[in-house]
Amino acid sequence: MEGTLNLVGFGLAAIGPGIATGLIFAAYINGVARQPEARNVLQPIAFLGFALAEALALFGLVLAFVL
């Protein structure tokens, strides 16, 4: 078997953003389900939170290939 350990590291590092994205969208869906007219308020917050969480995952992806 051959491969690079970076990808194992990336796999471990992606757990965190994965959970974070799940939590963010769970809260977003909850909020919209309870109060559908709040969607316009919640949407930017949810997407910015998603972007911040996803940023870490993408950093991991890029650094796994670059380093």
Binding site: M1, E2, G3, T4, L5, N6
Partner: peptide, 8 residues
Amino acid sequence: MRVYAATE
């Protein structure tokens, strides 16, 4: 970093 395991 590359890893090799003996599977020849």
